[in-house]
Each structure stands twice: as structure tokens, then as C-alpha cells.
């Protein structure tokens, strides 16, 4: 089982590095979850994008991200940001080394990400659509139209 899960990650990593991230990412969905007091809060795609690109936004939430080599991040890049990972990395190098803004903190796994958001009010993160969400977190956006 462990071997299987490893090899699945390996395949994903190879596919990502071969650059087929975009087409692969199209087949998956993600949802954006936040730790907020008001469970009625919904964000549109632009608001999510602004939060994760360090732009001004009407909602004051702290974004937390996954590492570049993960499939979930590739899905987020493709479906929400609309830029390739390489372009996003260039963007952040420009922002960081010109002292304007810095990229969101990263957690290495979805589990760590969820437990971080669970215990920190005012944080927001994206996770695979099929992940179970703790009841006190709010799904503020989903790429799955159903």
C-alpha cells in the first residue's frame, strides 16, 4: 500500500516535471477552505487569486500553500491562477527581491495544511476536492461546479 502510494507520487512527480501538469490538472478539482467565524462567506475566483498572489483584496485572510511539486498546487495554478508554475515562480522572485511582497507560507502535506488552518483563525488554503474538511472550517470556493 505504502509502495503503491509512493509510486503514485512518483508518477505524478514525473508527469509534473515533464510539463504535462496543465493537461493533467484539468482532470482534478480543488476546494478552498478558510477558518472564519461566518460560515456564509463565499469568495469568487478573482478574490481567491488576489489572496494567493499577494494582491490587495477585500477579504483579509492569510493564505497558506502547498509545495510546487504537488498535483493539488498544479490544479490550483491551472484552474484558479491561470499561470504556469514557472511563471508564478518568476513572479514571486520579482516580488521578493524587490521587497514588495512574499509568497504564502507552505506546508508540505495536505494533512499539515488542514491542521494548520484548523488551528489558526483567519487562514485560508486549497485542498483536493475529495478531502474531508473539519466541521468548523468553511468551504469558500470550489472548482467543482456540482
Amino acid at each position: 500500500m505504502k509502495f503503491l502510494s509512493h509510486s503514485r507520487h512518483l508518477v505524478t512527480a514525473i508527469l509534473l516535471s515533464l510539463g504535462s501538469a496543465t493537461s493533467l490538472a484539468q482532470q482534478y478539482d480543488i476546494k478552498v477552505v478558510a477558518n472564519v467565524d461566518n460560515p456564509a462567506i463565499k469568495l469568487d475566483k478573482v478574490a481567491v487569486r488576489n489572496l494567493f498572489m499577494g494582491n490587495a483584496s477585500d477579504v483579509l485572510l492569510k493564505p497558506v500553500s502547498l509545495p510546487p511539486e504537488t498535483l493539488t498546487r498544479a490544479v490550483f495554478n491551472t484552474k484558479i491562477i491561470g499561470l504556469t508554475e514557472a511563471r508564478i515562480q518568476s513572479y514571486w522572485s520579482q516580488m521578493r527581491f524587490s521587497g514588495r511582497s512574499r509568497e504564502p507560507d507552505q506546508m508540505s502535506t495536505v494533512d499539515e495544511l488542514l491542521s494548520f488552518v484548523s488551528s489558526n483563525k483567519g487562514t485560508v488554503a486549497y485542498v483536493p476536492a475529495d478531502v474531508e474538511i473539519p466541521p468548523h472550517l468553511t468551504v469558500v470556493y470550489s472548482t467543482d461546479k456540482l
Partner: peptide, 26 residues
Amino acid sequence: PLWQVKAGRMRTPFYQYSDVIDVGFA
């Protein structure tokens, strides 16, 4: 998140990439 003040020695932001002209990756 809406306000930032900087003071000190900085790069002059003439054009799009002037202040990261040494960061070829950008």
C-alpha cells in the same frame, strides 16, 4: 496588507524589471 513604507537604500524602479535587473530568473 494595504500599506507599506520602506526607508533606506533601494533599487530605483524605473521600468518593469529595473529593480530586479540582477534577478534573471524573474
